[in-house]
Computed example of a mutant assay.
Amino acid sequence: MFELTAALIVFLFPLAYSPGPGNMFFAANGARFGFAATLPASVGYHVATLLVTLAIGFGFETTLQRSPILFQVIKWAGSAYVLYLAWKLFRAHAIDKVGEARPAGMWGGAVLLLLNPKAYVIIALMFSQFLEVAASSGEVIAVGWISSVFTLNNLVAFTVWTLVGGQIAGLFRDEAQAHLLNRVFGSVLALVALWMMFG
């Protein structure tokens, strides 16, 4: 199981740490609200990650393959949701300013995962590469182990991105600078949304 885990982490490393919807979402929230305020969204995202990964591992992928329309609906809905988040961030003001802005909660984090079709593709690809190797341990154990490693690896990556976002924000406490930072993160999230939509 050790060799499987090591190979799985190597496989997932570039996928987890490269800029994507989840990483940019948590970096932006870390920059705007700080690390502690992102914890509910992180819990929601990673609980959803574990459940979706288990579902795909036990056969949900077959449903998506048989219903390409469902995949397209998820793709467009997810892109629209990330674009909405980008617009809110782009229009936000200073990080310390008290107003209507609130950090994403558990549900917001869960929705981000559920409406990200790229995650479904990555999870399906992961199982296609590693499930057969782990099958000697039994399907339930193999799917559970792979799902757990995938979820924990994402948690570490997103925590790093959140902390980096928070550190960057510390350099942008001035009103104008904070507004610029929000516009930069908003623009990056918008690009991620377009990548999800057309990629």
Rank of each mutant, 00 (worst) to 15 (best):
V111I: 15
W76K: 00
V111A: 15
W161S: 01
L54Q: 06
Y81P: 00
A157G: 11
E132L: 11
I74K: 00
F172G: 02
K88Q: 15
A6C: 08
F71T: 11
L12V: 04
F60S: 01
L191P: 06
E175L: 14
I122W: 01
R32Y: 10
A169I: 08
M1Y: 08
F58T: 07
H93G: 14
G166R: 11
H179Q: 13
F26A: 02
L70W: 08
N182E: 09
L89I: 14
F33Q: 05
L12Y: 05
F58I: 04
A41Q: 07
A110G: 04
H46S: 04
E3W: 09
R66V: 05
G186P: 04
M1P: 09
G59H: 07
V164E: 09
N23Y: 05
R183N: 08
Y120W: 08
I95Q: 06
N153F: 12
L83F: 15
S79W: 00
A134L: 04
V43P: 01
V111N: 02
L51N: 05
S128T: 13
A178G: 15
L64V: 04
Y81W: 10
K97Q: 12
T38F: 06
G34H: 10
W76G: 00
A92T: 07
P21R: 01
R173F: 12
A55D: 02
L85M: 15
T151K: 02
K118E: 04
R91L: 14
A169N: 04
A16W: 00
I74V: 11
A37G: 06
H93S: 15
I69P: 04
V140W: 07
I168Q: 03
